[in-house]
Computed example of a mutant assay.
Amino acid sequence: MNQKIDFIDLKAQRRHLGEKLDAAIMAAVNEGNYIMGPQVKAFEQQLSAFSDVKNAISCANGTDAIGLCLMAKKVRPGDAVIVPSFTFASTAEVVAWLGATPVFVDIDQASFNMDPKGLELALAAAKKHGLRTVGVISVDLFGQPADYDPIESFCDANGLWLIADSAQGYGSIYKGRKSGAIGTMATTSFFPAKPLGCYGDGGALFTADDEVADVIRSLRVHGKGSDKYDNVRIGVNSRLDTLQAAILIEKLAIYEEEIAARQIVADRYEAALSDVTSTPQVMADCRSVWAQYTLRVDADKRQAIIDGLKAKGVPTAVYYPRPLHQQTAYSKYPAAGNGLPVSERVCNEVLSLPMHPYLEEATQDFICEAVRDTIASVG
């Protein structure tokens, strides 16, 4: 193929939004309210409506979003928070920020999300280490929601709060419930490569609890009280800037259209590739936003497949090459049971293909043919 294939083509979206985005950016620039301008409040109101949740609070990035939730819950040393090991580091990182202990749990190999069956083992591992388990952070990995019914039942039975980390899954639906409206609190990221991304860093968190929302609004601005120079708690500086809010307003307006386009791409991948490799499956009564389209291939053949696709001009990515519990910074923390075999296995098998709403059929056909030919050639 003569044209370069982008793994995620942000420029195509930029062209699609065109003059509306230009106007929104210049309006924010010319108004001069660069921090907490009116676009921030407007965007938060639109997020709230999109997710059917009472409070949507923007912040500087998706990592801070989780951190603010933990601060609001007063997580401290001696506390344990159960998190999946097969995810990006930020999910566990924020727990360690506050001196608490992440306890890693395995994933379901079909969805790549937290396996609810491992939660009791994680609870036992925390107890063994003399820790008090206070909550669970689930992850909507690759765009698909976690299996929340059993996770929520476990949390309710054990008096735990639940944070739904939907950095990759914002806009997904679990059995009629939208991401953002699931869990005690939920979070997302607007990193540019995310399904709903801005032109820099940004994030948001969601809660139905007005008291928690008020605390978080204080925490994100240095712990301010009714007067910003009366700091009533120790906080942080974590605001979404006005320019990013203006950009996100325009992107949110077409987000449902883009989710539908992502589904069409995923359906075409499934039709073309499911007979030659393990393709991702979405749980019944759920919607994925397809942040990534992730195959599973033979571990001993993956590098040859990557190299073969690269030679044909098809970019790929591996999310994630090593589970958190095996990474240097996190290897000292407890893991549920006698190890996390599924997380360890899929790290050697996963391979993500280009995925975005503007992936043209001809380009996708080329990708699919390249995948089929490469898999056949490596045997």
Results as ranks from 00 to 15, higher is better:
residue 272 A to I: 10
residue 15 R to P: 00
residue 283 M to L: 13
residue 217 R to L: 03
residue 198 C to N: 09
residue 140 D to K: 05
residue 378 V to N: 02
residue 351 L to P: 07
residue 166 S to C: 09
residue 164 A to N: 15
residue 292 Q to M: 11
residue 69 C to D: 00
residue 185 M to S: 01
residue 72 A to Y: 02
residue 237 N to M: 11
residue 177 R to Q: 15
residue 286 C to K: 10
residue 8 I to S: 00
residue 77 P to R: 11
residue 113 N to P: 10
residue 180 G to L: 02
residue 263 Q to V: 01
residue 138 S to T: 15
residue 21 L to F: 04
residue 19 E to W: 01
residue 36 M to H: 04
residue 364 Q to W: 07
residue 370 A to R: 07
residue 356 H to R: 03
residue 241 D to P: 00
residue 52 D to A: 11
residue 239 R to Q: 14
residue 135 G to A: 02
residue 373 D to H: 01
residue 199 Y to V: 04
residue 104 F to Q: 09
residue 57 I to W: 07
residue 254 I to N: 10
residue 220 R to K: 15
residue 94 V to M: 11
residue 72 A to G: 07
residue 98 L to F: 15
residue 223 G to V: 02
residue 130 G to M: 06
residue 164 A to K: 08
residue 337 G to R: 04
residue 268 R to G: 00
residue 233 R to N: 06
residue 123 L to T: 07
residue 134 V to S: 12
residue 260 A to Y: 00
residue 265 V to T: 10
residue 151 I to C: 04
residue 215 V to C: 05
residue 249 I to P: 04
residue 116 P to W: 06
residue 10 L to W: 13
residue 356 H to F: 11
residue 210 D to H: 07
residue 128 K to S: 11
residue 202 G to A: 00
residue 111 S to C: 06
residue 141 L to K: 09
residue 104 F to K: 00
residue 350 V to R: 08
residue 340 L to G: 02
residue 264 I to D: 15
residue 110 A to Q: 15
residue 132 R to N: 13
residue 132 R to M: 14
residue 292 Q to T: 14
residue 327 Q to K: 09
residue 100 A to G: 03
residue 70 L to A: 07
residue 1 M to R: 01
residue 166 S to M: 05
residue 317 A to K: 10
residue 247 I to A: 09
residue 107 I to E: 06
residue 5 I to H: 01
residue 277 T to P: 01
